[in-house]
Amino acid sequence: MTALLKLRGISKRYGDAVAVQPLDLDIFAHDFVAILGPSGCGKTTLLRMIGGFVAPTSGTVEIDGRDVTRIGPEQRPTNTVFQGYGLFPHMTVRQNVGYGLRLQKKPKAEIADRVAEALRQSRLTEFADRSVTALSGGQQQRVALARALILRPKVLLLDEPLAALDLKLRHAMQDELRRLHQEFGGTFVFVTHDQGEALSLANRIAVMNAGRIEQEGDAETIYTAPATRFVATFIGEANLLPGERKAGQVKLEAGPSFADAGADEPVTTVVRPKAVRLLRAEEKADIEISGSLTEVVYLGDHIKCVVAVSDKQDVVVHLDVAVAPRPVVGEHVRLGWSIQQQRVVSA
């Protein structure tokens, strides 16, 4: 299967500042892709290069077999939902949604039908003749989506689509986006700094940092098998245990060692708080480490324990609330996890 959207060696420099390092990315039809990264990592620039709003310094953008690198946004089979939406303040909801079709000089009757249908699908029918400035944030968001989707883009681009909404509305819009993606059957690419949003919406995630894609894969792989230290810390909570690999053997600074193939180099071992267990007497685990409990916090759905395993190394453990007996601060505990649940990455 060939990719619908192919980025090859694409980069963007502003003077001496590099926004995006030369990178490759393939996006396949019907994917829901998140480009995830902290602010300033180049993710929005990358999206804008796909949409045609930023000319890349090098590289090519190919959509559906056609090189679109040099053509403007109006000729690309992409549509964009901008951060802040960019709705036309001098038009009603209906006029906003119909704008693209009017430019295509479609017959009036067809425009009216398709706009009405789009408004119905986005549950905007009752607001059709209101000015967009009179709408709430969530409604404006739906107008922006309807306005872009009515043109049936091959790729829909979304720039931080939920950033401006409050928490409750954000969850509702996540459901809405998921539903639209299923009904519409298109390819969605969205940019976000919120790892929770990326995990809940996207089936594929590209994690960006400092202008590079650090890892690209399905959500589960990104979470359970982070390729770099950055990916491990950016997505979910992680314990980072520094160590050294020599002759296929990793020795952690905090004590334990284990076999791990790879080059001799300083490494970081990543283990999720959920994967760490509190070992009972006599209980064995692949990796064992001990320390004293410095913090126990009840967080509703789990109990967070912080264990000092050395002077400068803490390990965070998430325990089930049903654990009995509840550990107490100051207690000496043994921790353990299985070797499959850890990841060794370059330091």
Partner: peptide, 18 residues
């Protein structure tokens, strides 16, 4: 002036003049 309004127009198929 919100530049995204013009970008939206371009995105939806308008030439710079349109």
């Amino acid at each position: 002036f919100d530049p995204r309004v013009v970008e939206s127009a371009r995105d939806l198929g308008a030439t710079p003049l349109q």
